[in-house]
Every structure is written in structure tokens, then in C-alpha cells.
């Protein structure tokens, strides 16, 4: 009874394993591989066929970075629960979009604060709570506010904020 692959001295790949030639099994294995490649390719083709929309929450925070060029750390607050995947992803993507500025999450004790509210009422509540003044509000409702009352606001674009 041969259990060792070296039992066959010939150059052929026929291998005895308990007196059973393993070559058919090896061919079966390679056949399975080819089937898997075909199945994979078919699935891949199916997956690629539809035109997926590109969705990236980080785009929600575009247009807020200009004022922050000199800043290294600002606050990020939201009335959304950051323990949930969606709001957490928004925070992480905001961090990516505004890097190299560090977003200090849920800490309003900074000169500038990004407020990512669920609605206008929540935004106004946050501004009141932190005694902050909106400087800029982009088309997605994200607000850049300042707690520095002396900071000039002649370029403020946040006048349309209504509850």
C-alpha cells in the first residue's frame, strides 16, 4: 500500500494513494477550478453590467474648507447618533474631505465648528447651545459656524438658515 507521492518513480504525475490513482482526482480538481473560473467570470460580468450610482457622503461637506486653511483642529457636532453606521460614515468622510484639518468629534470648544444637522431646527438648536454664529451653509445643509464673535462675517453665506 503506497501512501507516498514519491512512490512512483516515473516522470508522469500519476500518484498512488491507497492503491488508487490520484491523477483522475487531480484532473477533477483542475476541472473544478475551471468551472469556478467560469462561474466567477459570469458573476463578475453580471455584477459589472449595471451602472451603479456613485454615492459618497463626503461630497456633502464640500465647499467648507476654504475658511479652514489655517486651522489644524475644529469641532464636529451632529444631533445624529454617531454610533450608527450612517452618521459615523458621514463623520469619517467629512474628516477625509476636510483633512488635514482634524475634526474633534462632539467637541464644540473650538474656534470653528462643523454642524451636520438632521434638520434646520436641530441646526438652530446647536448654534444656540454653543453660542455660535453660522459663517457658511452649503447646499446640503451642513453649517460651518464660529464661536469667535469677533470673526468677520462679511462673506457669510448662511443667511438663509430658517427653522
Amino acid at each position: 500500500m503506497c501512501l507516498n507521492v514519491e512512490c512512483q518513480p516515473s516522470n508522469k504525475t500519476t500518484i498512488n494513494y491507497m492503491n488508487i490513482s490520484i491523477k483522475p482526482f487531480k484532473n477533477f480538481f483542475l476541472g473544478c477550478c475551471l468551472v469556478l473560473i467560469i462561474v466567477n467570470a459570469f458573476q463578475l460580468f453580471q455584477k459589472l453590467s449595471p451602472q451603479h450610482p456613485i454615492y459618497f457622503s463626503g461630497l456633502k461637506f464640500s465647499g467648507l474648507g476654504e475658511i479652514l486653511e489655517q486651522e489644524s483642529i475644529i469641532g464636529y457636532v451632529s444631533d445624529l447618533d454617531l454610533k450608527e453606521a450612517g452618521p459615523l460614515a458621514e463623520y469619517e468622510q467629512a474628516q477625509y474631505m476636510l483633512a488635514p484639518v482634524v475634526l474633534d468629534v462632539m467637541n464644540p470648544a473650538h474656534k470653528f465648528i462643523i454642524i451636520n444637522p438632521s434638520n434646520n431646527t436641530a441646526a438652530l438648536d446647536k448654534l444656540k447651545e454653543f453660542n455660535a454664529r453660522p459663517l457658511l451653509r452649503n447646499q446640503f445643509g451642513v453649517i460651518l459656524a464660529t464661536t469667535d464673535q469677533s470673526f468677520p462675517d462679511k462673506n457669510s453665506k448662511a443667511e438663509n438658515l430658517q427653522p
Binding site: 450610482p53 456613485i54 469619517e92 468622510q93
Partner: peptide, 11 residues
């Protein structure tokens, strides 16, 4: 359709 990559790519 995935220009920004997965979660850890941007995070």
C-alpha cells in the same frame, strides 16, 4: 463606480 474606495480607504 467606486472611486473613493471602501470605508478604510477614506477613513
Amino acid at each position: 463606480f467606486y472611486p473613493f474606495g471602501g470605508w478604510d480607504a477614506w477613513a
